[in-house]
């Protein structure tokens, strides 16, 4: 059966819905519980990973580059956990990077404003006139975060298969809708979609290994073959290409590595910023 990826403006709501689905429909859960494993595998601190996931973007915040790196670690492990089906996943940004897999049901849940405000400001009641401001700010933060790290806006409904507003539909009903949709035949995993996930995992793992040294690297997996783009000065081209090949080769499952070195990155930057 399908795997469900939940995204919500309120992480508590996402967690609650996910838990209910696990209870009712016999899914297993992937959530921030995996962060210690990520931290251990990639030798970083769990707090940094949490920070990369949560702290708002901004002038003094963690730079997008660093954030992308931690997210690459999280992504590699999360996708691995998503390989077996019947999984509910939330709170790991999976809705932004697990794309194009037919058996992933992506759900966006919109919380009631009161709920969200309580979560954002647990200390006490918030004056009515500040509520909308607070929510708008939160939304802006998340939009900016998702843009910084993945170049897309997580509030965009196009990212999802299902968008449910808890303003209109009760949480219990929402859970029913989600599990019912997940049981639809079109979300049944198949060889093609499972292969997609496998390729995804491989690419993410290779990228996680490379990203500290090559923050601009782009990795694509095609079966057991990797196609990697990095940026380097012309004189370092050969050296780095073989380095990348070596590093990527250490990831289990990788058979063949093809490295493309982009030497004209200023030109590239000009091109892409046009």
């Amino acid at each position: 059966m399908a795997s469900i990826i939940i995204s919500s403006d309120s992480s508590l709501t996402a967690a609650r819905v996910a838990d209910t689905i696990v209870d009712k429909a016999g899914f297993s859960i992937v959530n921030r519980g995996i962060l210690p494993e990520v931290a251990e595998r990639y030798k970083t601190g769990e707090d940094l990973l949490s920070k990369a996931l949560d702290s708002p973007s901004g002038f003094l915040a963690m730079s997008p580059k660093i954030r992308q790196r931690y997210m690459a670690y999280i992504q590699a492990v999360t996708l691995e956990k998503l390989l077996p089906d019947n999984v509910v996943c939330f709170g790991l940004g999976a809705h932004l990077y697990a794309k194009g897999v037919s058996h992933f049901l992506k759900v966006r849940i919109l919380t009631q404003p009161e709920q969200l405000v309580k979560e954002l400001h647990p200390a006490g009641p918030v004056p009515a006139h500040k509520v909308s401001k607070m929510i708008a700010r939160h939304e802006k933060d998340r939009t900016r975060w998702s843009r910084d790290v993945y170049g897309r806006d997580e509030t965009n409904a196009n990212l999802y298969d299902l968008v449910i507003s808890l303003n209109q539909i009760e949480e219990k009903e929402a859970v029913k809708i989600i599990t019912k949709t997940a049981a639809n035949r079109q979300f049944v995993p198949m060889t093609y979609s499972l292969n997609c996930v496998k390729e995804f995992i491989l690419a993410s793992q290779v990228r996680a290994k490379l990203i500290e040294r090559f923050p601009e690297c782009r990795v694509r997996a095609d079966g057991e073959n990797m196609v990697i783009h990095i940026q380097a000065l012309k004189r370092n081209q050969k050296k780095y290409a073989s380095l990348v090949k070596e590093v990527a080769g250490t990831v289990p499952g990788v058979k063949h590595v093809e490295v493309h070195v982009i030497t004209d990155f200023i030109g590239q930057a000009v091109e892409s910023s046009r």
Binding site: N184, Q186, F187, M190, S193
Partner: peptide, 12 residues
């Protein structure tokens, strides 16, 4: 892929 599965394909 989704269309095929929905229409009752065994695999894709």
């Amino acid at each position: 892929a989704r269309e095929a599965m929905e229409k009752g394909a065994f695999d894709f």
